[in-house]
């Protein structure tokens, strides 16, 4: 996972520089966030061309309207929200023209172990694999929330705004998701006669109590 190391103060400063017309700041924003936005976009629509068009339009849009943009202390959040809207719009447009393919349902947030290669060497214990398998069973919307919050360091509030849903539904969604996850992991492990180990138990507790 690639994270920019900017503090919120640096986010704000960079964004302000850009808004007041600094070309280098614009370039820097592209360097810092383009790849990340690309990944997020691709998780949403699974269509490279669409993602590129969306990013192209988005970057031009913020450039052409830089004087009218508001401040932000989290550029990623700002850009995620804008990109998501844009992709949603272009899908709506495409769906009108072409009734078949493009559905936002293709959103795919697949969870894997951080050290993929090591997984192959079976260093990831079985229980963790079970957790991951169960996490992948979550509805896409819930996965997207987890993705934005855990992977991209957004707050629940920001994740809600990016996705255009209320805080309440984020809470509900995550709470329901994780409670269900806890139960299903427990059941599965019990069924297979494995005592849940302490780290997985704590993980589940941690997930469900997070908010």
């Amino acid at each position: 996972m690639i994270r920019d190391k900017l503090t919120s103060y640096e986010h704000k400063a960079l964004w302000d520089k850009f808004r007041f017309g600094n070309q280098d700041a614009y370039s820097r924003i592209y360097e810092l966030f383009a790849a990340d936005l690309y990944r997020y976009g691709y998780n949403l629509v699974r269509n490279k061309q669409l993602v590129e068009d969306g990013l192209h339009e988005l970057f031009l849009h913020i450039y052409n309207n830089r004087e009218r943009l508001g401040p932000t202390d989290n550029i990623r959040f700002y850009m995620y929200r804008a990109l998501r809207r844009r992709l949603l719009d272009s899908l709506t447009r495409l769906n009108k023209l072409d009734s078949s393919d493009y559905v936002f349902d293709n959103a795919e947030f697949l969870i894997q172990s951080y050290e993929t290669e090591l997984v192959e060497q079976q260093t990831l214990d079985y229980q963790k694999k079970v957790v991951i398998a169960e996490l992948n069973q979550l509805p896409k919307r819930q996965k997207e929330i987890l993705y934005l919050v855990f992977m991209k360091d957004l707050t629940y509030q920001q994740a809600a705004e990016v996705m255009g849903i209320t805080m309440k539904s984020v809470y509900n969604s995550v709470h329901v998701a994780l409670s269900a996850l806890r139960i299903s992991v427990n059941e599965r492990l019990n069924r297979e006669g494995i005592f849940i180990n302490i780290s997985v138990a704590m993980l589940l507790g941690y997930l469900t109590s997070m908010h």
């Binding site: 383009a34 894997q112 780290s199």
Partner: peptide
């Protein structure tokens, strides 16, 4: 600290654009 470590230990599978993709997009923008 295991749970937190563990959270950091799972990640979402992502398709990362190649440098060529990013350069082409940059040029286009």
């Amino acid at each position: 600290d295991k749970p937190k470590d563990y959270i950091k230990n799972i990640r979402f599978e992502e398709t990362t654009p190649s440098q060529a993709d990013l350069d082409r997009l940059r040029k286009r923008i």
